[in-house]
């Protein structure tokens, strides 16, 4: 199969922009063509001080799709992910070169306010990290700081909607005032997803959201992703290739190249294509070795 023309950055967008309605379930097969581009990176380099963590990444992320980043440890997947909502800004030495645009707007333009970016591009972390507060307060915090609701019934509605979307409502509706720390790991992670959904973001970044969870909890979160992708755009970093194959529409494979001189590792994007292509007929030998388990 030829590489999907839509993902290759060099391709000029000459084809008509047909926005097909997302089809519920059964997303196997070739990705639907020409969905709106949410993120576009071009020759993106990320540094931590003098150390180059990611080199020369160019890719496009499409609306209402799940894009998976796979690759061995230390290949810069998480670093890449944290560029999309400027979470890397929190690391003082981090620096980004190249362009990263969000709906055509340069995310690293000096005029861009990272706080506003993060309200639109939410994040779910590797380890469930609920606030040590009540379940209700966890979900209500985002809307509160975003001033979506002051409290009262409006806030109650947001909390209920978010918890329902995250498939957690039925389990916690009778103990919303209880501490979130009393939930199981899988429930905590769904609470973190609910917290992320509560501010009504456009994009959700997920950094190995299931790595601390058992297979049942993982299954629930994967189902959840499949449901919510009709409303959101999702980028997920995962170590689990089956997970990438199961849930994602497109997959980017990163690997690390060892620098001869400094013995450091820099992440590079090897291949980016429709998930089915990546797993059945990858264009690069390294991808094939990785997805078939011969490397990494």
């Amino acid at each position: 199969m030829a590489p999907d023309p839509d993902t290759a950055v060099e391709t000029r967008r000459t084809e008509p922009a047909v926005d097909l309605a997302p089809q519920a379930g059964g997303h196997r097969g070739a990705p639907r063509p020409s969905k709106a581009v949410v993120f576009e990176t071009e020759a993106l380099n990320v540094y931590y001080g003098a150390f180059k963590a990611v080199r020369d990444v160019s890719l496009r992320v499409h609306e209402h799709e799940i894009t998976a980043f796979i690759g061995p440890s230390g290949c810069g997947k998480t670093t890449m992910l944290r560029c999309f909502n400027r979470m890397n800004d929190l690391i003082e030495t981090a620096r980004v070169e190249g362009t990263l645009s969000y709906h055509g707007v340069d995310l690293y333009d000096p005029g861009v306010n990272p706080v506003e970016v993060r309200r639109r591009v939410g994040m779910v972390f590797q380890k469930p990290n609920p606030f040590p507060k009540s379940i209700y307060e966890n979900v209500a915090y985002g809307p509160k700081v975003a001033r979506l609701a002051k409290g009262g019934t409006a806030m109650d509605e947001i909390v209920e909607r978010s918890l329902r979307q995250a498939a957690l409502w039925d389990e916690v509706k009778d103990r919303l005032k209880a501490s979130a720390m009393g939930l199981s790991g899988g429930q905590q992670q769904r609470l973190c997803i609910a917290r992320c959904l509560a501010v009504d973001p456009e994009v959700i970044l997920m950094d190995e959201p299931c790595s601390a969870l058992d297979p049942i909890a993982t299954g629930r979160i994967e189902d959840l992703m499949d449901e919510i992708k009709q409303q959101y755009t999702i980028i997920i970093v995962t170590h689990n290739m089956q997970q990438a194959a199961r849930v994602s529409d497109r997959t980017a494979f990163f690997t690390a190249e060892v620098n001869e001189t400094s013995d450091t590792r820099t992440g590079i994007l090897v291949e980016y294509d429709a998930t089915e292509t990546m797993f059945s007929n990858p264009g690069d030998e390294r991808t094939e070795n990785y997805v078939t388990g011969r490397f990494g």
Binding site: M87, L90, V115, R118, F125, N129, Y141, V145, C192, V199
Partner: peptide, 11 residues
């Protein structure tokens, strides 16, 4: 992780 959670929802 607590700080990141806060920043992550746009605080």
């Amino acid at each position: 992780s607590i700080r990141e959670a806060g920043f992550g929802v746009g605080a």
